[in-house]
Simulated assay, not measured.
Amino acid sequence: MSGGARRVLEAWRLGVVRYGDALQLQERLVADRKAGRVGDLVLSLQHPPTYTLGKRSEKAERNLLAPEHELRTLGAELHRTERGGDVTFHGPRQAVLYPILSLRALGLGARRYVEGLESTMIEVAALHGVSARPGDPGETGVWVGDRKIGAIGVRISSGFTWHGLAFNIDPDLGYFEHIVPCGIAGKEVTSLQREVGDWVELPADEVIHDQLVRCLARALGFTDVEFKDDSGDMIRSAAIVQS
């Protein structure tokens, strides 16, 4: 990126969105980004309880520790996706970012992009006094010691990104007991609240979502963030278009 150039990341605050609706919205926005109808943006949201499998679904299926009908009794949906990674859980009080970006326009390769997602979660953890790190070889995501606090699963198509990261603020960690998270056995899952201690009051989830967005923007070379709170109609229109 040329020195001094202004590059704006548009951030849509979407609240709680069902996984299928968010997926349809991403598909539409990736097509729009490829065609130049929208600029670089990121969806900031949470999901109702949802398990997702990565594109190597046969391997990911083996890391489901309960059949799909049992997951439904927990109130959770199951989705098979085209993202990278294995099986993971999304739910309330977990911050999810789905960046829709042109890596070529940013001058970034896939590895540098993933490192940007890692550093985003590490920086936000540090803002709250928690020391996190990238995973060791073979360990995706972001870790606090041997406990995973953030997951990464991306898809890159012709240099354009979708899917993204999930950062555990204070989700119900019991849901993770029904999977081998990200296919890594013998490791715990943690959250920001667990790491700071129950006696510490974290700011509202929305504040942490915005911290993640701003850290992401810096990590990827954006100079400004423009937040939008009125994007709910886009979810509804995407669902109509895809139906």
Score class of each variant (00 low, 15 high):
I149F: 08
E177M: 06
D136T: 05
F227M: 08
A166R: 03
V154T: 10
A126G: 15
S191Q: 09
E82A: 15
K148N: 03
E195D: 05
R155P: 02
T161C: 06
V30C: 07
G39Y: 08
K55C: 09
D233Q: 14
N168T: 11
L97V: 00
Y19K: 01
S158E: 14
E206K: 02
V225M: 11
R56P: 01
P137A: 12
K148R: 10
Y98M: 02
W199R: 11
Q211E: 14
R62C: 02
E115A: 13
G109S: 04
R111M: 11
A5N: 03
A66W: 05
L101K: 00
V207G: 00
R111V: 14
P49H: 08
T73P: 01
R147C: 06
I240G: 06
L165W: 06
G138C: 06
L192E: 08
D170Q: 15
K34D: 08
A110Q: 11
E188N: 11
T190C: 08
A125E: 12
R18D: 15
G145R: 04
D224G: 09
V200D: 07
I149N: 02
A219G: 11
E195A: 10
V114P: 03
I240H: 14
R37T: 12
G20Q: 13
A22P: 03
K55S: 11
R83K: 13
G145K: 04
D172W: 08
P181V: 05
G174S: 13
G84R: 10
T73F: 10
A132Y: 12
P137Y: 09
I152V: 03
S2P: 02
A60C: 07
A217S: 08
G150F: 03
L101E: 00
V124L: 12
G54L: 08
P67E: 13
G150C: 01
E201D: 15
G159L: 06
R62A: 14
